[in-house]
């Protein structure tokens, strides 16, 4: 009996420690449709737009996980299940294109968000408010930045060690 209990406890403890790798589930919408949903043209230069994106994400409760100025990418995590990556691309001196790409994390997968309402209401309207400007949608013939995949937040020592290990092997 004692061994039976021990076996059950050990099995449960091991299963509780297992962390399945997240499977990325991209949207089923077409690339053109997704581009329209995720992209806006902003009347602002690159630096001012980058600052405004960061400020807006902070206001919306995102923790900024990475800023890559040379690529114009800002990545953040809200709560523990919503990730957002925003790409800023200069379009001349006074205009920038902004593309947002969000994903929702569950226990087994990371699903790309493709709801037009989410991007409009939960990012582009607040961004326009921060900048005090109106944002416009991109025309189908215009170039748009590629969507960036949000960076995962590393919250445990084990996650950071695994990341460091994968960085050294790359």
């Amino acid at each position: 009996m004692r061994w039976r209990v021990f076996g059950i406890v050990a099995a449960l403890a091991l299963s509780a420690c297992a962390q399945p790798a997240l499977q990325y589930v991209p949207s089923k919408k077409s690339a053109v449709e997704l581009r329209t949903i995720q992209t806006r043209v902003v009347p602002g230069d690159f630096d001012n737009t980058m600052r405004s994106v960061i400020e807006t994400m902070h206001d919306l409760g995102y923790r900024i996980t990475r800023v890559a100025p040379e690529a114009g990418v800002v990545s953040g995590t809200r709560s523990s299940s919503l990730r957002l990556a925003v790409v800023v691309q200069s379009r001349g001196e006074e205009e920038s294109a902004v593309r947002a790409n969000a994903s929702v994390i569950s226990q087994i997968q990371e699903a790309q968000v493709d709801s037009p309402e989410f991007y409009q209401r939960d990012f582009f309207v607040p961004l326009g408010d921060t900048m005090g400007r109106s944002l416009t949608t991109l025309s189908e013939t215009d170039d748009a930045p590629d969507a960036a995949r949000p960076v995962a937040e590393l919250n445990t020592l084990a996650e950071r060690e695994a990341q460091a290990k994968s960085n050294t092997t790359e």
Binding site: R4, V5, I8, V9, L12, A13, S15, A16, I54, E55, H58, R63, I64, N155, T156, L157
Partner: peptide, 22 residues
């Protein structure tokens, strides 16, 4: 286990305090 049922034992393991300044 003694009752023949299973229970998934979970507890808080790690925590990180994060600060963001803009």
């Amino acid at each position: 286990a003694l009752m023949g049922a299973s229970y998934n034992a979970t507890w808080d393991k790690d925590q990180v305090i994060r600060a963001t300044v803009t």
